[in-house]
Design a protein around this nucleic acid. Structure first.
Length: 300
DNA sequence: CGCCAGGCTAGCG
DNA sequence: CGCTAGCATGGC
């Protein structure tokens, strides 16, 4: 195992590993806490994943992002956690309202991830009408069933399956993994990617055209497309209109509800500062989802 | 039991 | 185009 550490004290806005990985952005990481994790011990907890053919684990401690891996992953971590994003500049671009400012205060340092496109695409197809914890569970099941194994310290881990590996899955097999009615969506989309339709084909397009491009996959509508654009392809203006953000729009930005997805999307992106609106969305999503006692009437 | 969860597709008008 | 029923599964 190789190891190293990245100083995060000099990063603009800092870095918060826990909130970055536990805010429903990426579903490839597993927390190694043996169920003993508590609010009083938020740092020093290892998170692990398999990316490509490398096993990797990270933890945040003493102003550093420490890593251990089967290969050198320092440059990869910079990219995956978007450590070069100027968070203070991004915060300054967001609206000065209560929910935004409270979420920034609470989750300062949380960054948008840059996940590999295929796992991200499949994860968010699975996310339809599903709770965050179960989405994690489904992705782990897919990896265990179809992904390449890698053994580290006597423990067996699995990479997320490649498009080719997942293209071989049947609907019945995927239903047995708990995917429900998303099973045929996942199977068909995996075949489309395996047959050469690369989600990165969205990359050379403008934001709305890129979103449209991604909706050609089965199981991908506007919302899932926005998630892939934001959490994998670097479109930081993408604002996935999920149930939580729709609730926020209803109570906090009612004039942004224009009925249709595309029109509401334009209005809320403008309201959230445009260029980094996706950052605002992710902070609000995490804030509202964690604040189970949040009431619209007292949200001001 | 009913309701909800990071919605989407197919089939209507 | 826009609108909506139906869809799997598990937790509360």
């Amino acid at each position: 195992m190789e190891s190293g550490a990245i100083s995060i004290t000099t990063l603009s806005g800092g870095f918060d590993l826990r909130h970055t990985l536990e805010s429903g952005q990426s579903y490839r990481w597993r927390r190694r806490d043996d169920g003993m994790y508590t609010e009083s011990a938020p740092s020093g907890v290892w998170y692990e994943t398999v990316t490509g053919d490398a096993y990797l684990r990270v933890r945040q401690r003493d102003g550093r992002l420490e890593w251990e891996s089967t290969t050198d992953v320092e440059a990869l971590l910079q990219k995956m956690f978007r450590l070069n994003d100027d968070l203070e500049a991004i915060y300054a671009s967001l609206p000065n309202d209560s929910v935004i400012q409270r979420s920034i205060a609470q989750y300062r340092g949380m960054r948008i991830v840059q996940d590999p496109p295929f796992p991200c695409l499949i994860s968010f197809i699975c996310s339809a009408q599903m709770r965050v914890e179960r989405i994690h569970q489904m992705q782990s099941a897919l990896a265990d069933a179809y992904g390449d194994p890698i053994e580290v310290d006597g423990e067996r881990h699995h990479a997320f399956p490649t498009p080719e590996q997942l293209a071989g899955a049947t609907d019945a097999e995927l239903r047995d993994l708990g995917l429900g009615y998303r099973a045929p969506y996942v199977a068909k989309t995996a075949r489309m990617v395996a047959d050469g339709l690369d989600p990165r084909g969205a990359l050379d397009r403008s934001y709305e055209a890129a979103r449209e491009f991604l909706t050609q996959y089965v199981g991908v509508g506007d919302k899932v497309a926005d998630c892939v654009l934001l959490f994998s392809l670097g479109y930081l203006e993408a604002v996935p209109l999920d149930t939580w953000i729709r609730r926020a729009i209803e109570h906090l930005y009612p004039d942004c509800d224009r009925g249709g997805y595309a029109e509401t999307s334009r209005a809320i992106r403008a309201r959230l500062g445009g260029q980094y609106a996706g950052y605002a969305q992710t902070y609000v999503f995490h804030f509202l989802r964690m604040q189970n006692d949040w009431q619209p009437a007292s949200g001001g």
